[in-house]
Design a protein around this nucleic acid. Structure first.
Lengths: 192, 192
DNA sequence: GCCCGAAAAGGACATTTGTCACTTAATTGC
DNA sequence: GCAATTAAGTGACAAATGTCCTTTTCGGGC
């Protein structure tokens, strides 16, 4: 499965055989069962992960016991609780496999080593980080400026694949509305 | 006014006199009148700014003509439309001085030069960027998981100073609710 | 310091969204 | 393949929020 990641990398940056070996030597591969958690609230997020296959979600549980999904991660996406990962503080979030998934994982110290030794890799992560930052701002804008229905339509347009792979109650949770509201939105949307 | 920025820098990173001179030589200082725009929707954001004094807001105007504030920037904050700044695409946002402000500005090419030449400076910007990223995620979480009242209370707790310096309709716009809703929230909050 | 315009508050009503309780449909795990 | 569980849809009602409009208060520019 490392080959898939190797392809991901070489499509984006130049790496020598030795550099790829270094990366490979620090990479762990894991199969995650549907429903299993790779990060639990209260734990420190000590690893960064790359999704080879499958779909995961990062979510929090609020004081009333409601789940709120902050992010989905599918094939070729990176996932971790960045705050906890960087600060070493306990995470407020859970990361769960929605589908049976295969992921690659790196311990923070190892990943830091890669960033230090491989400028191209560091630059890739930097530009990725900038892109995610901008995407998050877009989502924030959407969340303060759009109605629930508009948010739903935008989500379908932007992430049709994910929308089709997760149950509707997770879509609702991601959009910040109740399942019932999403149900209503869909009922009228279908009649348009 | 560069001295204030110099203090900001030297409190955070080590810089030689020569390095500071380099930075200074590329820095432009501007006074912005209350209500003036330093970035207009449709323009490309070609500069990055640092607020020495005053308060600015970054906002967008939606299809219905409503303003939505994505961010406030006060003393010691950086501000630009990052998406437009990095991609060179026209910005969808405006940046306006809410108070008469003094800012330092750098052209992208000059700022890139500083990042290239000064590793400590680059590292400072990187860690700042990570912090902002995490703060944005928190705000996103708040926006999908909290009621309008909870968001308002969180905003006061986190940014009391800004909350006291801007008109309430801007607080409402930042929170993603109407002025009337904020008015109601405050009415009941006061009676608690 | 005063005046004007902007901001805030308030009321009445409409719309959206949430909550709860229940039914129906779909999935999955054995 | 079936039973049990989970997800989705629905209706009735409550609560939150938006809209529109008027009144009151405040604040900045001259």
């Amino acid at each position: 499965m490392f080959e898939i990641f190797e392809k991901y990398l070489t499509e984006r940056i130049e790496l020598s055989g030795g550099q790829l070996s270094l990366i490979r030597s620090l990479t762990a591969e894991n199969k995650i069962a549907r429903g299993a958690l790779i990060l639990r609230e209260g734990e420190i997020c000590r690893n960064i992960h790359f999704v080879i296959k499958g779909l995961l979600r990062l979510y929090r549980i609020d004081a009333k016991g409601n789940e709120h999904i902050l992010r989905f991660a599918k094939e070729n996406n990176w996932i971790s609780d960045r705050g906890s990962y960087l600060s070493g503080a306990p995470s407020a979030a859970n990361i769960e496999a929605i589908e049976e998934s295969i992921i690659l994982s790196w311990k923070k110290a190892d990943f830091d080593l890669l960033l230090k030794e491989l400028p191209a890799f560091r630059e890739l992560m930097r530009s990725l980080s900038a892109r995610i930052h901008i995407a998050n701002l877009e989502r924030l804008y959407s969340s303060i400026s759009n109605s629930a229905e508009e948010k739903y339509i935008l989500f379908i347009e932007k992430d049709r694949d994910i929308c089709n792979r997760v149950p509707l109650y997770m879509v609702a949770s991601y959009l910040g509305v109740t399942r019932e509201t999403l149900s209503r939105i869909r009922r009228v949307s279908i009649n348009k």
